[in-house]
Amino acid sequence: MSVPDDQPHTRTRYPAGEAPPEAAPGRHPLRTLGAVLGAVVLLLVVIAVVNRTSGSSTQAGGTTGGAGSAAGPGSGSAAKASATAPTGAQPVTTSQDGIATGYPHTSEGAQSAAVNYSVALGSSQMYATASRHSILQTVIDPSAVAQLEATTDTQYGNLNKTLGLTDGVARPGLTLVSRPLPAGVKADSYNGDTATVEVWSDQLGGLAGTGSTQPVAEYWYTLTMHLAWIGGDWKIASYSSFDGPAPIGASQQVSSANAIAGAVNQFGGFRYAR
């Protein structure tokens, strides 16, 4: 079965919600645009690019650095939290390979870029070579793209083998699911040509279908992206990640694997604007 199109199709204003806790300011090399291995399921997260160890992080074009530290869910003050509200500015109207581009040279533009880039980097398109390279060329600092392509080719080659995929395509009867669901965004800093933005997100990941040994589950994490204004648009210079904040799971009945696969194929993702 073909990999579902998890790239954003619909533009919407970003929903209101509490901002995630502040992350540590340290920057480390971007190493994996890979998946998150949960207790019972391989949760495929970003950019793609998530290290399960709290405080571990990565930077585009570099090698693995030392572990940093990230503030836990209770470290933020309630007084600092603010709702994510639309500014009234014109939303992004252009795109490249299905990814929104051409963001305003503003703090709001940097936040919109961070959210949309996190969705692209966490999508199932990262598991196919051609679409993965296209995503990296769109969202990463151009000076780091070549090295990152080589690194992720190896990483996703291994992930494809682990999941039984053929360049991102699951065997008949199964559907690869990898879709981030951003819940909130906030700007930690903005200095004209650089910005640090946090994206709090849920992620659906796994293989849907009868007989799957990696059923679709969810995983909460926070990405801290360091963005740079390059060539008239925001690009990812580096970013880090940490687990959570994760809410208590609801007592809903779990849907069948076929129902999950049908929903992923029928419901398109969103394009976000701050």
Results as ranks from 00 to 15, higher is better:
149 E>L: 06
164 G>V: 08
172 P>D: 06
252 Q>P: 13
151 T>N: 07
200 W>Q: 02
237 A>Q: 12
71 A>F: 09
31 R>E: 15
153 D>N: 03
10 T>V: 10
135 I>W: 11
99 I>Y: 01
256 S>K: 00
262 G>E: 13
241 S>W: 06
236 I>F: 14
24 A>K: 00
224 T>F: 11
225 M>N: 01
160 N>K: 04
176 L>Q: 05
24 A>V: 02
136 L>Y: 01
268 G>M: 06
94 T>E: 08
216 V>Y: 08
188 D>E: 13
103 Y>G: 03
40 V>I: 08
130 A>F: 00
257 A>M: 05
89 A>W: 00
49 V>E: 04
233 D>N: 11
208 A>M: 03
3 V>Y: 01
2 S>P: 15
4 P>L: 10
22 E>G: 12
4 P>A: 04
132 R>F: 13
136 L>W: 02
157 G>P: 03
42 L>E: 01
110 A>Y: 09
242 F>K: 00
36 V>I: 08
218 E>S: 15
194 T>C: 08
150 A>V: 08
199 V>W: 06
272 Y>S: 06
224 T>K: 13
247 P>L: 09
109 G>K: 05
193 D>W: 05
3 V>Q: 01
207 L>P: 09
45 V>N: 07
57 S>A: 15
70 A>C: 12
65 G>M: 13
1 M>Q: 05
47 I>V: 12
35 A>T: 06
83 A>F: 14
69 S>V: 14
114 A>D: 05
201 S>V: 01
181 L>T: 03
225 M>S: 07
146 A>Y: 02
45 V>M: 07
240 S>H: 12
180 P>R: 00
145 V>R: 00
70 A>G: 15
78 A>P: 10
163 L>G: 04
150 A>E: 07
9 H>K: 10
193 D>A: 14
66 G>D: 12
178 S>L: 07
33 L>P: 01
52 R>K: 11
165 L>N: 02
130 A>C: 01
26 G>Q: 12
189 S>K: 06
